[in-house]
């Protein structure tokens, strides 16, 4: 028999309350229970980064956290990265322009990771960007367009900040 817990959390700004088997990792919970399939599972041993989501603003691997541990927390997934009005996050826009994605499977983890990284490091060097995505595997792009997209997004986000 599965041990079940009732949890309450906020996902992409919306309150969620439901039961979860305690053995579900957060990635399986988001995908299987909430139907948020934008979070992808690539390895389930914490090495590929595809499943990265933001937990209270921190980029973490959702396969390495139990869903019950998200109780009371704020979760942001790829589905919640754009503005509610549909305006893409500067990273999403830059990925489209710089061809920072091909198959799209690693992309949600890249975007969530970089969103957290750019918040803490708004003016990164290329080396810092590469370091930031060194825990995210991509087999399609060779990373270079992702790095270019991150630098482009960072520059635009700094400009927007400056305007404000």
């Amino acid at each position: 028999m599965d041990d079940i817990r009732h949890i309450a959390l906020t996902v992409n700004g919306q309150p969620v309350e439901c039961d979860t088997p305690v053995r579900l990792h957060l990635g399986d919970f988001l995908r299987g229970i909430l139907g948020l399939t934008g979070t992808h599972l690539g390895c389930e041993h914490g090495a590929c980064g595809a499943c990265t989501v933001l937990v209270d603003g921190e980029a973490v691997r959702s396969c390495l956290m139990l869903a019950v541990q998200a109780n009371g927390r704020q979760i942001t997934t790829i589905e919640g990265l754009a503005d509610p009005d549909g305006t893409l996050h500067p990273l999403q826009q830059a990925f489209a322009e710089k061809h920072g994605l091909q198959c799209g499977y690693c992309t949600p983890g890249m975007l969530t990771s970089l969103a957290a990284f750019l918040r803490d490091t708004p003016d990164p060097t290329e080396t810092q960007v590469r370091d930031a995505i060194s825990g995210n595997l991509c087999r399609c792009t060779g990373y270079q367009p992702i790095v270019e997209a991150a630098l482009l997004a960072a520059a635009r986000m700094r400009q927007t900040e400056g305007v404000r």
Binding site: G46, G49, T52, E58, A59, V60, R61, L64, M65, S113, A116, F117, A132, S134, G135, N136
Partner: peptide, 8 residues
């Protein structure tokens, strides 16, 4: 590890 794993 990586900054995502160091967060946990």
């Amino acid at each position: 590890g990586h900054f995502q794993t160091r967060a946990r």
